[in-house]
Design a binder for these strands. Structure first.
Lengths: 221, 221
DNA sequence: AAAATTAGTCAAAAATAATTTACTTAGAAT
DNA sequence: ATTCTAAGTAAATTATTTTTGACTAATTTT
């Protein structure tokens, strides 16, 4: 008579693939941390979605915290790379300013997880982003490029103002991000659905108008 | 020989005061939920800070969730009451627009917990704010007032634009709030301390400039 | 082909938190 | 003064989640 203990568990044999598994965990974790924040995120849900065992998170990343850190680095690297492709400096300043606004607006609109992750990281007072020298370094060039654009536009008489590049950057980001970050509460407060594509389209136009009119770049009234 | 069990525990007798205890829990909970979000908040920490027993939270509010709900309602009621005191409609439109911006900016700057709570509520996709009809109702009048101000300013020729009140409101809030909501990440990214009073003062001026110049209200420069 | 490595599984332990039970007693009501 | 209600305490319980230990077997290396 065979004892139950003798029967080897029929494990559905999974072919090995470290790169794929690691990448899958990371990708799923982006969504999980974005959706629920660090504290709300569940290791088990990541596990399920990545169709792997919880042990693997510890195997590949060391733990929930380190996984979160890897997620942060990864999404920042992505946006900074995209920004770098804008390559300001050659075209008409007004056009480049418009491109700056439109790129930022669209990137946020299309990469919902990015803003959500940042929102949560700020909830934690930047506990983790502060540890990443990489993120700091990657960001400097873009601010510098905006400063040069302001300089050039003003010198050429295309802009009537020459704002501090950091203030302008914060303004562009604020106008592009706030309604996404706060769609739920603002939507309830103003009684409109801010996630509606038509609303967001109107917002896009408004954002461009606000920034360009501030620069004194003479758009349509 | 006296048995240990016989000795009544020397409980530091606390005088009873339902109102105070309830209010203390609520007040402490505002900070706790603001600082850590719903998931990160700890019942035990609230207990400690309110110098009461965890049982009291269940006694007065029913649980962690209901306490959070009470916190939300309480902070929204407060800001809406303050806004109502602005009473637009009599003074110069440009002046009133400026007051709108400055009030919003200052309220956010001075009531850090309000923005933090909202940030977290959005992380939860507005799960709880949606349950509060009160918050919805309290907010309508302010949007209406802004609409009337736009109307009046435009009719009087004080504003060259007549924007959608919701868009304008979102813009004012965005410019006033984003740098506070994202001080940690933005600060790291731009390499400046956005919590510095001098920085925030500059931001205040910039915010007013952006909004008024968009309205075509002819400020300096 | 044997040995070593490491991707992967399972199940339990450790840690962390929310909630409840059982009890005590201050202060209001009779 | 006695009774009653509910404010308050302590400690256990239940629930949830993260983390680890012990093992298995697929690949890689030698």
């Amino acid at each position: 008579m065979s004892k139950i203990e003798d029967v080897p568990k029929a494990q559905p044999v999974r072919s090995r693939n470290p790169e794929r598994t690691r990448a899958e965990i990371l990708s799923v974790a982006v969504t999980e941390f974005a959706e629920h924040g660090f504290h709300g995120a569940r290791v088990e849900r990541i596990t399920k979605a990545a169709k792997c065992n919880a042990r693997m998170i510890y195997h590949y990343f060391g733990g929930k915290e380190q996984l979160y850190l890897a997620v942060l680095d990864s999404v920042y690297a992505q946006i900074r790379n995209r920004e770098a492709q804008l390559r300001f400096g050659t075209a008409d300043p007004v056009l480049e300013a418009r491109r700056l606004v439109e790129f930022t607006y669209d990137y946020f609109a299309q990469n919902g997880d990015f803003l959500k992750l940042i929102r949560n990281e700020n909830l934690l007072n930047g506990k983790y982003i502060k540890r990443s020298q990489m993120i700091r370094d990657m960001s400097q060039p873009f601010i510098t490029a905006i400063g040069e654009l302001m300089e050039r536009g003003h010198a050429a008489g295309a802009f009537s103002r020459k704002p501090d590049p950091v203030q302008l950057y914060v303004t562009v980001v604020a106008l592009s991000a706030h309604h996404l970050n706060n769609a739920a509460t603002l939507g309830t407060v103003v009684g409109q659905d801010l996630t509606d594509p038509a609303w967001q389209d109107a917002r896009r136009g408004h954002t461009v108008d606000v920034v360009l009119s501030y620069l004194g770049a003479g758009t349509q009234v």
